[in-house]
Every structure is written in structure tokens, then in C-alpha cells.
């Protein structure tokens, strides 16, 4: 697909710009849908109904929200470091947006079929930490700074179990390329890595429990990486006002928001690609062509986004020390043990 677009615009930078902008076509509608989904799920879990007036069952509310945010005054505090303050939200968004380059939306479309796919995702998504720290520091506000520090500590800590969990799968699959990973799992639901991958039965059975633990580790750690409840201590409203984006308003705040939701999809998509077959249809070759691949990918992605939302509105926030405990004393050792077991299985079969 990338080649095709480039061939349409020879000797011009336009082709690259279009390729670069393609994920936006997905992110913007996705963000609108997810905002709506989140509000509705949150409300119904609390026996409320959420917005009902703008459009049918409030379906136009996300648009109204965006219109509102566009009109808001964009305040920059006098004591803030202007340059960093303005740069920070864009940096956070860039860190998230860059990861979309390798997400295999279908076998035809991926911005880049990088060999180091997973490695790239983990590395690039860490740029958001820089943006968050920047926003916290530049705001010149204690709450913001606390939030930023917590966010940095949290994201860095949880990157380790995520990376370890993903490495174990990479050891089984023998590739970091997300496109190849999806290809390997395209033989129906039992070829997905959560069910042991496309291997002979004995190896499969040995792998299933480990994969399941790895999946839980990845799910938990990825939730922490997107700073959502129960891991939302960087934003903890009751303690820190809004954490690192306390001072932001208008469009800059909207960009933080957009980045958070986009990031939510990225981590869900990684979970999907690594454990749940990426764009592969659960029925093997049935319903597994062109548009359907995109459909499956987005459907699975949205499924995990919903699980994230579900967990968010179920669990209370962790304390800072509990957060560190979960990362360093539970997830990391478990991930290490799983990695060793996977290594033994891979070597002996």
C-alpha cells in the first residue's frame, strides 16, 4: 500500500505526507467513538444513562465536546516555560502517533513493515514520558510536577514487565515484525499465541498456561503505561487536581486527551497482534480478505479498549507504593520466570 501511494506521487514529498497522515483517518473517528463508549459504559456501570440529549442517545456529544474545546481560551500561565509548555502536548502525541507506523491494520496496510516492530513500539512510545515530564516541569505548578514525576516513574517501571512479556512471545515466534507475527497466527483461533501458537500439540499445551500469564502481565502493564485507572496516579484527580495537564486548556488539553486515547488503542493493538492474531480472522481462511482483516483488527482492538474501560470503572486507584510493588515484585518476577520457561520450551522442542 505504501509503495502504491508513493508511485502515485513520483518525485514528490506529498506521497510521504499522505502516508504519514493515514493513521489520523483512523485515530480521529476512533477517539470520538471511544469517548462515547467510555462515557456510556461508565454511566451504565453506575446505573446512570450518560448523555442523552445531543442526537440519538447523545451520539453527537463527542463532536460537541470537541467544538467546545476548540472554542476554549488557550491559557499559558505567565510563570510557565512557554516553549516547553507548548511543545509538551505535541511531543506526547508524537510519541503515540509514531507507534501507529508499525501497527498492521491488515496484511496490505502497515505504515512500515519494520523488522524491529515490537522493539520500535516499546522504544518510541517511551517518548511520551519525555513529553509528560516536560509538561509537568514547564507548567511551574507543584501538582503538575508531582504528576509528571509519578508518570515517569510509573511508565518506566511498567515498561520492564511489558518488554519481558513481549520478549517471551518474540522468542516463541522468532520475529519482532508485527506483520509476520500476525501472518503466523492467521490459521484460525487456535493458532493465536494466547492458545499456544501454530505449533504441534505438545508444545502448544505447554505454552498455553505461560501465554495466559504473559497476557495478564501485558494487559496489566499496558494499562499502567497509558495512565488509566487503576493506574492513574499521575492524574489522580483527588490528589493532584489533574496531574501533569492541570494547567492545560483548550486545544492543548484536547491533544493530551487524544494522545491518551490513541495510546490506549496502541497498547490494545499490541496485545491483539502479539496474543490474539492481529488482523487474522478467528475462522482461519473464512472472512479473511481485504476489508475483513481491517474489520477484525479494529474489532479486537476495540474489544481490549473496552476491557480497559471496564477495568477502569471497576477498580479503585492504587497507592504509589502498591503501584511499585505490583510492577517490581509481582509482574517483573513472573515475567522473568515465564521467559525462562518459554526459553526452555523453545530449546527443547
Amino acid at each position: 500500500m505504501a509503495e502504491w501511494i508513493l508511485s502515485q506521487f513520483p518525485d514528490s514529498i506529498l506521497g510521504y505526507v499522505i502516508i504519514g497522515a493515514l493513521p489520523l483517518l483512523f485515530i480521529l473517528p476512533y477517539a470520538l467513538v471511544t469517548i462515547y463508549l467510555e462515557m456510556k459504559m461508565a454511566a451504565h456501570m453506575q446505573d446512570r444513562v450518560a448523555y442523552m440529549r445531543t442526537g440519538w442517545h447523545g451520539t453527537l456529544q463527542p463532536f460537541a465536546d470537541i467544538l467546545k474545546l476548540l472554542q476554549k481560551e488557550d491559557i499559558i500561565p505567565t510563570a510557565a516555560d512557554k516553549f516547553l509548555f507548548i511543545l509538551a502536548p505535541y511531543l506526547v502525541f508524537i510519541g503515540t502517533y509514531a507507534t501507529f507506523a508499525v501497527l498492521p491494520f491488515s496484511s496490505q496496510y502497515a505504515g512500515s513493515e519494520l523488522y524491529l516492530g515490537i522493539y520500535y513500539v516499546i522504544a518510541v512510545s517511551s517518548i511520551t514520558v519525555v513529553g509528560i515530564l516536560m509538561s509537568g516541569w514547564a507548567s511551574n505548578n507543584k501538582w503538575s510536577l508531582f504528576g509528571a514525576l509519578r508518570a515517569a516513574a510509573q511508565i518506566v517501571s511498567y515498561e520492564i514487565p511489558t518488554a519481558l512479556a513481549l520478549i517471551s512471545v518474540v522468542m516463541v515466534a522468532g520475529t519482532m515484525n508485527l506483520q509476520v507475527l500476525s501472518q503466523q497466527q492467521s490459521g484460525g483461533i487456535f493458532d493465536w499465541y494466547i492458545f499456544g501458537g501454530p505449533f504441534p500439540i505438545v508444545k502448544k499445551l505447554l505454552l498455553i498456561p505461560i501465554m495466559f500469564v504473559l497476557f495478564l502481565i501485558q494487559l496489566t502493564a499496558s494499562m499502567a503505561e497509558v495512565n488509566r485507572t487503576p493506574f492513574d496516579i499521575p492524574e489522580a484527580e483527588s490528589e493532584l487536581v489533574q496531574g501533569y495537564n492541570t494547567e492545560y486548556s483548550g486545544m492543548k488539553f484536547a491533544i493530551f486527551y487524544l494522545a491518551e486515547y490513541a495510546n490506549l488503542f496502541v497498547v490494545s493493538a499490541i496485545t491483539v497482534v502479539v496474543f490474539f492474531g492481529g488482523w487474522a480472522s478467528p475462522f482461519g481462511n473464512y472472512l479473511n480478505s481485504g476489508g475483513w482483516e481491517l474489520f477484525w483488527f479494529v474489532l479486537k482492538g476495540m474489544f481490549f479498549v473496552s476491557i480497559n474501560i471496564w477495568l477502569r470503572w471497576t477498580l479503585p486507584r492504587l497507592r504509589v507504593d502498591q503501584l511499585m510493588y505490583v510492577s517490581w515484585k509481582v509482574l517483573t518476577p513472573f515475567a522473568l520466570v515465564c521467559m525462562i520457561l518459554v526459553g526452555l520450551i523453545v530449546v527443547s522442542f
Binding site: 454511566a43 451504565h44 456501570m45 453506575q46 446505573d47 444513562v49 442523552m52 471496564w310 477495568l311 471497576t314
Partner: peptide
């Protein structure tokens, strides 16, 4: 406990809302 909690919220997802318009 997480599983229990998720069960509770899931059940409430489908109980009729107690609020009125």
C-alpha cells in the same frame, strides 16, 4: 477480587438506570 468486581460492574452494565431524564 478483580474478577468479582468486574462481575459486579458487568451485571450493572445491563441493569436499568436508576436515574431519570
Amino acid at each position: 477480587t478483580i474478577a468479582i468486581g468486574m462481575g459486579v460492574t458487568f451485571r450493572h452494565l445491563f441493569t436499568p438506570a436508576v436515574t431519570v431524564q
